[in-house]
Design a protein around this nucleic acid. Structure first.
Lengths: 355, 355
DNA sequence: CTGTTAGCGCCTTCAA
DNA sequence: TTGAAGGCGCTAACAG
């Protein structure tokens, strides 16, 4: 581009052009004209001038005087991996939509949750410099405790909301997937296919055995007239050790397997098929996440689509609404949103021989 | 959070506290103290006051007077699908890093490339309102022409750079993957495994037959002493029609297959294996993108990792450097960056029976 | 109903 | 080397 210092028109120029005062223009621009009782005619004149001069208000200037920037910050406290490839991006889309609809903008702040030399949080400094009116925190799985302190510090200074990715109940209320509803929908699907022996698999034994996830399953099964067998817990380890997983499946003979990540489901399917156990003929498997490749694998993956865009939008809207109404952002309890099960090829009727 | 109108200190207060003038503080804050010949001692005093009062400069205010906001906009002109699940997010990480390192921030603007009622681009209005100093455009695959007009309009008003996702040469120079180097690295890998009959597959016949991609392959093969056979072009259609693909493979017998998207590679592998053609034993396949599930599939996918984070960082740095030095952002030619091949299980030695 | 006026927090000549 | 003063573009009383 060529350097064109084409100065933009100011509010005063618009006022002069329209033959009114700057106050009038200001009111019109900010939609307070009706409230202040400016004639329709005058408003028309002002609008015409605005159009003719191609005037756009300078938000920086109004931010200075009102103390309101109409900007919020989105702070990623997530591993690059999680953010890049899993839920992060869809959440961002939601933020963008929510902010736009509320007439706000957001700046994206990454990797700035560390404490600096002087025991200050860079993110707070940035927020202050940029006059951010609030903060959305993306809280990584398993990082809840680490984030705790900064959450507290931020809460003392700025309106904020958190978007949580953990499956366990959060330490603080936040915006998150309704994993309970998700589990129920998945289990419902499996049960409707005749499955009674539904197991749970995850990469990590910690996750596998975590009470919160087990509770999820026990609940869902119970609600649907089944029973979750605590023996049907499976570790889905690195590829090299998948033999153990296959063995365990052979031994315990579940007919359905529930996972919390598409990657684990895909890994399981691969190992099982190599070992001659067919999916979904011998075993139905569900994923979680609906990642792009999940529809391309063979068999295509039945998986839960978490409503990340919706969560992002809801979170930022709540934040902005609280800012506007000067309400506390604090949540009584987490806002849990439901997605939907995408039924594809990795789940099928329970095998006759076993049922 | 509780509503605490704890007023932040102003530059004037710092000046009073330090017993100097506001001008002095301003110079110190903006790092121009040495240039203006402020005593080290004075600077010390000022810094101490800044610390004690916890002063942070108000960028909105300085933006008003200098006309410099130190903010740029990132404009997504990509389908949600592409942005969410493929390259977008990684590019964003790059932007975040680049901007942070340059002391800038960026606001993310989505879906605002459409023309509004009055034939104005909302994005330009936003840029003006927010005093954005430049724009990064994310140009979707296949949208180059649609974007052209707005690119031109923007270029007349604001410094800008584009990040391009297309495989074809761009109509305007931009930041992009060095697809040529990528193709070469992939082909090199295949040739080193003994493959001579390397084909190309894509979802779309348009893509399959596109001269730019074919040129990519012909070039790579030629450079490595091979020859690309134009007969080895394959459509990798929707799952239901994959029979045709398998037939074509059977007929033409390539030993290696190059694709431009992990999803297509995975779909191909699935169909082939169902038909009894083993990967990589009978046919080696490479993907493109290195999506999260690509390492989980069986066989795990050999795929090219495009350097999206690096591209994002390079693009925004170039933009900001040009802004700072008041240089034109125009590129003589595209900046093409190389990623690397992630070698996994879907490629292997050429089958003995065929070679 | 509209205009006048006094700042918002900061930067930048210009004198001293 | 530092301080005083004016102004950036805008808003918000308040006056009329």
């Amino acid at each position: 581009m060529v350097n064109i210092p084409k100065k933009r028109p100011t509010l005063r120029e618009v006022a002069e052009h329209a033959g009114v005062s700057t106050a009038t223009v200001s009111l019109v621009v900010n939609g307070k004209a009706d409230g202040a009782g400016i004639t329709q005619a005058t408003q028309e004149v002002v609008h015409r001038s605005i159009r003719e001069l191609q005037y756009t208000p300078n938000r920086m200037a109004s931010a200075v005087v009102t103390g309101r920037s109409r900007m919020v910050g989105v702070v990623s406290a997530m591993s690059r991996e999680l953010f890049d490839t899993k839920f992060g991006p869809r959440v961002l889309s939601g933020f963008a939509r929510g902010a736009r609809r509320m007439g706000y903008h957001f700046v994206f702040l990454e990797d700035i949750l560390s404490i600096d030399e002087t025991n200050h949080f860079p993110v707070l400094k940035t927020a202050s410099e940029m006059c951010l009116e609030g903060l959305v925190l993306l809280v990584d799985i398993g990082k809840e405790e680490q984030i705790r302190e900064i959450e507290n510090r931020i809460s003392k200074v700025l309106p904020n909301v958190t978007v949580q990715f953990t499956f366990a109940p959060g330490s603080t209320p936040g915006f998150r997937v309704d994993h309970k509803a998700a589990a129920k929908e998945i289990v419902e699907h499996l049960i409707s296919l005749g499955h009674e022996r539904v197991g749970f698999g995850a990469r990590n034994l910690d996750v596998v055995r975590s009470e919160s996830v087990i509770a999820l399953l026990e609940n869902s099964m119970a609600q649907l007239g089944g029973r979750f067998d605590r023996d049907l817990l499976f570790e889905i380890p690195q590829k090299e050790r998948m033999g153990e997983f296959v063995e365990a499946i052979r031994r315990k003979r579940p007919t359905g397997l529930f996972t919390l990540y598409d990657g684990e489901a895909v890994r399981a399917i691969g190992a099982l098929r190599e070992a001659g156990i067919q999916v979904p003929e011998d075993l139905s498997i569900t994923g979680y996440g609906n990642f792009p490749l999940s529809k391309e694998v063979t068999p295509s993956l039945t998986t839960y689509r978490p409503p990340m865009v919706e969560i992002g939008e809801a979170a930022i809207r709540h934040l902005i609404e609280c800012i506007e109404q000067q309400r506390d952002t604090i949540l009584e309890s987490s806002v849990e949103m439901t997605g939907n099960l995408v039924i594809r090829g990795s789940t099928g009727p329970v095998p006759v021989s076993v049922s």
